[in-house]
Every structure is written in C-alpha cells, then in structure tokens.
Design a protein around this nucleic acid. Structure first.
Length: 473
DNA sequence: TGGGGTTAT
DNA sequence: ATAACCC
C-alpha cells in the first residue's frame, strides 16, 4: 500500500499543521540542501518541493443538464433541472442563480423557482453514452484515465509533463504561462521544478477541456495537483468551466479551508459519525489526534488512511477503469406487493440490461437481485442475493436467442424467493438487477457469422453525438 | 431522495 | 453478502 508512495513529496513534517514558513520558497528551506537544487537540461532549478506525479481531475459542469441541453438546444440559457422521480438531482447554473439547489425535492425547487424547466432523468442511457465518450476522448491524451463517476475522471499526466519538459528544454521555462487559476493566488516560480510541472499540467488540462468542449460540446472544471485527493479537492475552486492548480505549499490552506470533516473525499456519513463520537469534528482535531485513538475506533488500516487523507497525502495510483465491472438497472416505486408484478418489473429490467450487454459484447457470469423493503426505517434496508448464471444460459446471451430473457427472469425470481416469503404479505419499493463477473465472449462465439452481422460496429457507436468545432455559445 | 457505480471486509 | 464510499 505504502510502497508506491510519495512520502518524499509529502516529506516528513511532524509540524504539519503549524503555520507555514514565511520564506519565499516555503518549505524548501526545511529540506536537505542536496535535494534543494537539481540540474535540468543544464538549468539549475529549485526542486525542494518536487512532484512525483501530476494528476488532473476533470469534473463536468452539471453533467445531466448539459447533456439534456445538447439534446434539446431550446433549453439553453433557461433555468433547467433534471429530476429522477421526485428528486431534483441536478440543475444548470441559470437555475442555481435563481436559488435552486441540487438534491432537493422537485416541490421545493418549484417553490423557489416556478419558471424552472424540468426534464426526466431516470433513464441514464444518454448520460452513460456521453460519459464514455468523454473518457474515450481523454484516453487519447493518456491511457491513465480513471472514472470516478459518470461526470468525473482522473488523469495521471506525469509522463506527458516529463515528455514536454524534455522536448521543450530549458527555453520553454521562460515562457511557461499557467493556464487558469492558481489556488490562493500564489505566485508560480519558474525556478521551482514542481511549479513548472504543475504549469505544464495546467496546459494539458486546458487542452483536455478544450477538446471535450469542441468535440463533445461539454464544459467542466479541472484541478491539477500532486495526487488524486488534492486534484479532486481543488478542482471545484472556481466554477463553472474553470481550472485551478494547487502548488505544494498551498496544501495546508486548501485543507484548512474545509469547514467540515465530511468534505474530505473518503469520509462519508458513517465515518464522520464515528469520529464525532470521539469528539473529532474539525480537520484540525483530526490532524492532531493520536494514531492510537483512531486505530482503536476504526482499525489500523482505516486509521492510517484517514491520517494521510487529513494531511492531503494520497499515494493511490490512477488506475485505468476500462469497461465497467458490472451493469445494473433499477427502478423504485411507491408499492409493489404481488409476485406477478415483481416478475413483470424484473423482466423489464433484464430486457434493458440485455440490450446493454449486447452492445458491450461481454457476457456476465453472475446475476444479482436487490430489493428494498418498505417496512421499518430508511433506505439502508437494501438486501441482495446473487448466484452464478449457468453456462448454457451465458452462452445464449447476446445471440438474439429470445429464450434467455425468460431463463434469466426465472433465475432472478429464485433469488427473489430467497429474500421474500410470498405467502406472507410483502411490500417492496425498489428492484434492481445487476450483471457482474463480465467476461469476454470466447473466440468461438465471436467467429460465428451472427456475431459480425448483428453487432453494431464500434465506428457507429462513436457517432451518436455530432457537435461542430465552433464554440457553442 | 435516485440510479447508478467502486472497493474493502 | 454486507457495508462503506463516490456522484
């Protein structure tokens, strides 16, 4: 875990939370002199705060709303919200200016802003397709692209930065404008190698954003920093459609400005609760908390990652996501109490999943059924059962054989009966089907005539959206 | 409160 | 299989 670390980037600083040195080069003076200077193409540069990695986090602006606006240009410029059932999951900036907030109920949003236009967003197909186009586009820059959500990607651009440093040589340093903002409005020093690398990273990020804008018509924010954690935390500093670099010496400020412990990526409600039980609610108290206290409450492993996270340290590499590990489809509803109804809904979920599986080309070897019981408190009561898909059923997936659907539904209903005794009155409010353990179809299946005649070509898949290269505003 | 995803245990 | 996290 710690082996690929950046402990030197984050160098041992026992007084981490103490005020920063006032000197021009910040923490540089703390470092051993031998690390303070490094020759690059014969150019002597300070590298006391050298970076091991340059990471870009790209976060698309109100993604669903943007996609809807591309699909229906008449929506542009008007306050727009996207709803799933009764929840407003996102809205554009025109709506936000009028006081509309994300993740509120549709009712609340309408009260705030009666002229709010709404589109339904339960069907993720459009968003998913656009999302993978964004990732594919980013993969043209570097293979090191990791998806965090439909609208977020991490890129490790370290190699790109090093390559540009080599190619451009020292002459480039004198004309190295930073693209976008610098966190805390700090001055970028061309004599500090870490600064230069981040500056190059900012240019790469700008090129990525421009490419996403011109080719897909989408805008977004980028953060550029020395690790994923910091890149993500800094990316939303200026919004929408802007980008920010974080210099190593601004790490403290960025974290200190978080008002809540839960703003730290990786700290969710559960962890926050447990920390609050220890009296830890502020970042500062967490930073100063003895390791033993955290370890006792959370275990050694979780305690260690927490201690690093609250200092802005993160050595987790960017892992290329590739195709998804699982495909799932859900539907929530007010009430469903009969077995026939369940079977019908499960059939619909499986039918739509089979279409996605067909486009994907891989075959699932596991199926899982999840449901939410209406009884008792809250939505934590999701329950799932999974089982292997028998080989003879797997074989027929994607062949157009219509019997697979019924076989999969029968399988799902077996899982359903493991959770629900239909002789007793039941009441569920959500059904979800998930296919996982996705494997490439065996070569023998690919060689069949049917495979070539019926599968869409990948070149067709890439033409779902057509956007001119002209600015769209 | 929605409809997805991931990783760790 | 569950529980936590992300959006």
């Amino acid at each position: 875990m710690e082996s690929c670390g950046e402990e030197d980037e984050e160098a041992p600083e026992p007084d981490w939370w103490l005020p920063e040195p006032r000197g021009r080069f910040g923490s540089v003076s703390c470092k051993p002199a031998i690390l303070g200077v490094r020759a690059v193409h014969g150019n002597m540069m300070r590298s006391g705060s050298d970076l091991r990695r340059v990471i870009v986090h790209l976060d698309l602006d109100c993604f669903y709303a943007q996609v809807e606006t591309i699909c229906n240009p008449e929506l542009r410029g008007k306050p727009l919200g996207v709803q799933q059932k009764n929840l407003l999951i996102t809205c554009n900036y025109e709506a936000r200016k009028l006081g509309v907030k994300k993740t509120t109920t549709v009712k609340e949003a309408k009260e705030k802003c009666p002229e709010l236009l709404l589109v339904k967003g339960e069907d993720l197909t459009k968003y998913r397709e656009m999302s993978y186009k964004v990732t594919a586009l980013l993969e043209e820059f570097t293979p090191l692209v990791e998806r965090l959500a439909l609208d977020e990607n991490f890129m490790d651009v370290t190699e790109m930065v090093e390559k540009r440093l080599e190619e451009w040589g020292k002459d480039a340093f004198s004309q190295m404008p930073v693209s976008g903002h610098v966190y805390g409005n700090r001055t970028v020093s061309l004599h500090d190698l870490a600064h230069v690398k981040l500056a190059i990273g900012s240019q790469i990020a700008a090129e990525m954003r421009e490419s996403v804008r011109s080719r897909l018509g989408l805008t977004g924010c980028a953060g550029i920093a020395s690790n994923k954690l910091l890149a993500k935390m800094v990316s939303g500093t200026f919004r929408p459609n802007q980008q920010t670099i974080l210099l190593p010496e601004s790490r403290r400020d960025l974290i200190a400005h978080l008002d809540n412990i839960k703003k730290l990526p990786g700290i969710g409600s559960k962890t926050a609760q447990r920390l609050a039980a220890l009296g830890l609610t502020t970042i500062c108290s967490l930073q100063m908390c003895p390791a033993a206290v955290l370890e006792k409450e959370l275990g050694v492993s979780a305690a260690r990652t927490l201690q690093k996270v609250c200092r802005g340290e993160d050595d987790v590499p960017v892992t290329p996501s590739g195709p998804p590990q699982s495909l799932s489809d859900e539907d929530s509803f007010k009430k469903c109490s009969s077995e026939v109804e369940v079977e019908k809904k499960v059939g619909e979920l499986i039918a739509s999943l089979l279409v996605r599986l067909y486009k994907d080309g891989r075959k699932p070897h596991t199926i899982k059924l999840t449901l939410r019981k209406c009884i008792t408190n809250r939505w934590l009561n999701r329950e799932g059962r999974q089982c292997p898909i028998p080989p003879h059923v797997v074989q027929k997936i994607g062949t157009g054989d219509s019997s697979v659907q019924n076989q999969l539904v029968a399988l799902a209903m077996k899982l359903f009966h493991k959770m629900i005794n239909v002789k007793v009155l039941f009441h569920i409010t959500l059904l979800s089907v998930c296919f996982s353990n996705l494997k490439d179809a065996p070569a023998s299946a690919k060689q069949s005539i049917g495979f070539y005649l019926t599968r869409p070509s990948s070149s067709n898949c890439n033409k779902l959206v057509h956007v001119s290269s002209e600015p769209i505003y």
